[in-house]
Simulated scan of single mutants.
Amino acid sequence: MSRARRRRELVIERLTELRDPSLGGGPEPAFRERLREDLVSGRLLLSAPGEERAPGPARPPVRRRRPPLSQLATFGLAGVMVIAAFATYQAVPGDTLYPLKRAAESTLVHLSADDAERGERELASAETRAKEVASLLGSSTDSPLVGETLKDMEDSTRSGISRLTRTQPRSSKIKKFAQKQRDVVEPMLDQLNEAQKGQAAGYLDYIEGLVAPAR
């Protein structure tokens, strides 16, 4: 006997009981009509005693989407970080972000894998100092920051050259660096005061020896 047939018989038995006058009167005709329609259409589901309904298919997990406001905040923060990094890279002596720029350069130097890489990064810092001097000269030739930056440029140059000549004595990078620095520093001489000009001239004499061919 199928389950559907068993459920129909249970319903018929229940209807028979409801028609029994001893139970205080049967159900209203309208109720019986609605019940019959539900049974025919399958909308009424009755389970036999001890029978359990089969579990339905598991629903796929619902992925929670991040609120639009949170996404905008994330993009905004990323944009601010990019702008801050660019502003730090463009900072010159005297700017608020300049110490952060120098700290980042120093960190890169100390994180270098070996002396050769450390020397190359120090020469890169020297090139940056030369560009900063040129930027400062466009605003004021009497600023003490010009002299300080010239000294930092020379210190980075000597340290970087020392490391490279010890690890890569015949590296072509040394000559290329010296030529590039000479082309940047020489045009500054006419804009420097006497003390600054002495610093720049001594620096040019030093790197000129790096450009000249070895005998």
Rank of each mutant, 00 (worst) to 15 (best):
S156E: 10
V146Q: 02
R163N: 09
L192G: 00
E186C: 04
Q181L: 07
E194W: 12
S172D: 13
S156F: 03
V185Q: 01
S139F: 07
S135G: 02
T157Y: 07
A134M: 06
R163T: 08
P169F: 07
R166I: 13
M188T: 12
Q196S: 13
A134I: 12
A130I: 11
L189I: 12
V184Y: 00
D114W: 10
V146E: 07
D155M: 05
A116D: 15
S159N: 06
Q196P: 15
S125A: 10
E194L: 14
L150F: 04
E132R: 02
A200F: 04
V146S: 02
S125F: 05
S171Y: 07
R163D: 14
L136H: 04
D183W: 08
S135A: 13
M153Y: 01
P187R: 04
D115L: 11
A113Y: 11
D115A: 12
E127L: 07
L111G: 10
M188V: 04
E148G: 04
K175Y: 07
R166F: 14
G138Q: 15
Q181E: 14
T149P: 03
G119F: 03
A134C: 02
T157P: 00
Q196K: 07
E127Q: 06
P169R: 02
A116S: 13
D155V: 11
A178P: 09
M153Q: 03
D183L: 06
K197V: 11
P144K: 01
D115V: 09
I161L: 14
P169E: 15
A195Y: 14
I174A: 01
Q168Y: 05
S156Q: 08
G147V: 09
Q191A: 13
L136D: 02
